[in-house]
Structures are given as structure tokens and as C-alpha cells.
Measured scan of single mutants.
Amino acid sequence: LTVHVGNVTYHFDNPEQAEEWAKRMAKKYQGQIHVKDGQFRIE
């Protein structure tokens, strides 16, 4: 699973971990989480 934050990409084996990280990053950067094809993108 991949989480994109700006132009930085993080890889996770565990979906719960990826989702948790995406939520934390979205809160930190006050962005929206977009989920597409098993990838999380924070914008």
C-alpha cells in the first residue's frame, strides 16, 4: 500500500498502518485524504 504526501511516497505492508498514517498526515497538513486504487493521497 502506498501513501503519497505531496511528492513523498511511503510504502506500507499493513493496510491499517497505511490508513492510520494517512489520517495523521492529513491532520498535520490539514489536507484531504483521497483513496484510489489502494493508494492514499494527501492533498
Rank of each mutant, 00 (worst) to 15 (best):
L1A: 15
L1W: 15
T2L: 12
T2Q: 09
V3G: 01
V3N: 00
V3D: 00
H4V: 14
H4M: 13
H4K: 12
V5I: 12
N7G: 13
N7V: 08
V8I: 12
V8S: 08
T9E: 09
Y10P: 01
Y10F: 10
Y10W: 14
H11R: 09
H11S: 08
H11L: 10
H11P: 02
H11Q: 07
F12G: 00
F12R: 00
F12H: 00
F12V: 00
F12Q: 00
D13N: 12
D13L: 09
N14S: 12
P15R: 14
P15I: 12
P15K: 13
P15W: 15
P15Q: 10
P15V: 12
Q17S: 13
Q17F: 08
Q17E: 14
Q17W: 09
Q17V: 11
Q17H: 11
E19L: 15
E19Q: 09
E20H: 07
E20T: 06
E20Q: 11
E20R: 12
W21C: 15
A22V: 05
A22H: 02
A22M: 05
A22P: 00
A22C: 06
K23Y: 10
K23S: 05
K23W: 07
K23N: 09
R24A: 14
R24N: 08
M25F: 08
A26S: 05
A26L: 05
A26K: 02
K27S: 12
K27D: 13
K27E: 15
K28C: 15
K28I: 09
K28N: 03
Y29W: 09
Y29M: 07
Q30I: 04
Q30A: 09
Q30P: 06
G31S: 07
G31F: 08
G31P: 01
Q32K: 11
Q32A: 08
I33L: 11
I33N: 03
H34P: 03
H34N: 09
H34A: 10
V35C: 13
V35E: 07
V35H: 06
V35F: 15
V35L: 12
V35K: 05
K36E: 14
K36Q: 14
D37N: 06
D37G: 03
G38F: 04
G38D: 06
G38I: 02
G38A: 02
Q39I: 10
Q39M: 07
Q39K: 05
Q39D: 10
F40Q: 03
F40T: 03
F40A: 02
F40V: 08
R41P: 05
R41Y: 15
R41A: 07
I42K: 02
I42L: 03
E43W: 06
E43S: 06
